[in-house]
Design a binder for these strands. Structure first.
Lengths: 221, 221
DNA sequence: AAATATAACGGACAATTGTCCGGATGTCAA
DNA sequence: TTGACATCCGGACAATTGTCCGTTATATTT
């Protein structure tokens, strides 16, 4: 396995993402468990590669019981998710800031394209972990990826851009929610990797098709 | 669990889909195993519901060893797939015939829309089994759903329509493969069910958005 | 502080998945 | 017919997932 992004290991070994200001002993204990689990998962990830990590191992490595682990994370996809969390939240923060700037010189649709470019870059970058996450999540009807808060923030960012694009008369009469979800489906990591790795398509080619479909095709003619 | 489509139980209890003309004893034995496995899976499906079916049980019910079962089907998704196979092939046959008719009064894009309507109807109809199949396939990098022959036939049907649409001057300069895959991603069963069941969207609303994006948006303006 | 109630840890164990190999069965050549 | 060779079945077993409950730690009451 190729060396992991060093950042991933760094996210949790420091303090947790929860504000450590609260000295509630319960919060403290919870965050300590979280830290140990993520540290263990990250260690195993580096040592053995992503395919060789399982819940039993992680509990062992973290020095906790399996019950305790399962109570916090239903499956390894959630652990990987949490490993990426800081980086993902930073990414979405950046997107929100980028889109929130009032008086941007870009039209809503141009901003949307920039968002798509950044998304593809991000997916391309975090390939292995994202691929593992979507694999582990698939088939768990318990927790739909689309319902996770971070995905909803992303959804909202894109929905806003479509809405603004339409209201500004650049385009019209689209169902924003469905359109956003179709876009996100086209941006699903497995989808991107299939084209990149099996079909050998370049990032630019992927982007061009996305633009044709979701930007050009929806603008007022 | 709601009563299963009776057809599903019927597909395999008769002869196999392989031409039974060949009296090669090996083929005969293989088809006999296949028949027993599918019969067992279908029986368990009716009795216990789709969530309660596992490989061990199926082997038991079919009266064969687990090794024998795993040698033929890597996971239960493949078995469900095979249960649907006859119906799916019939469906794709119909589509091919529909699109192959020369001198259709419809434009390529109108035909494409009809194909989409039929696809959504089919997905809506076979909801439970399709959902189970895509769940079981997800996370198995071994066999990508998109590479299965039946999916490639579907891909080709749609790709032809896009190509014809473009060459007839109705639209232009699109990357057919990517566009087809984006369309298929938007038509993925989980995607459709999420909107139908979680968000309460109607089939018509779903279709309208697909039309806006993949038909109207791609036509020459 | 002791007693009681509440929460939650951890590991035993059940359930399921996935692998492997001894042996049964069939094939073919002499 | 027989023996060498190949195929592949079946189920034992290893690996992994997922659950449950006795025990222990923490909070609350008196």
């Amino acid at each position: 396995m190729e060396p992991l992004d060093r950042d991933i290991g760094a996210h949790f070994t420091g303090q947790t993402a929860e504000p450590p200001t609260e000295s509630d002993p319960k919060e403290l204990r919870d965050s300590e468990y979280r830290r140990r689990i993520l540290a263990a998962a990250s260690r195993l990830l580096e040592q053995n590669g992503i395919d060789a990590v399982n819940m039993y191992q992680i509990a062992q490595e973290a020095g906790i019981g399996q019950g305790t682990l399962y109570r916090r994370y239903e499956h390894s996809g959630e652990i990987y998710s949490d490993l990426l969390r800081t980086s993902l939240e930073q990414f979405v923060d950046d997107l929100e800031q980028f889109c929130g700037r009032t008086s941007s010189p870009l039209t809503a649709f141009e901003q949307l394209y920039q968002v798509i470019v950044r998304l593809v870059d991000y997916i391309d970058d975090k390939a292995e972990l994202l691929s593992a996450i979507s694999c582990m999540y698939a088939g768990k009807k318990s927790l739909l990826l689309q319902k996770r808060p971070i995905m909803m923030r992303l959804h909202n960012i894109i929905a806003d851009l479509f809405t603004r694009g339409c209201s500004q008369g650049e385009a019209a009469e689209i169902d924003v929610t469905l359109t956003v979800n179709f876009l996100l489906a086209a941006l699903a990591p497995e989808q991107y990797f299939h084209h990149r790795d099996s079909l050998g398509y370049s990032k630019e080619r992927y982007l061009a098709s996305l633009r044709r479909l979701f930007i050009d095709g929806l603008q007022k003619r």
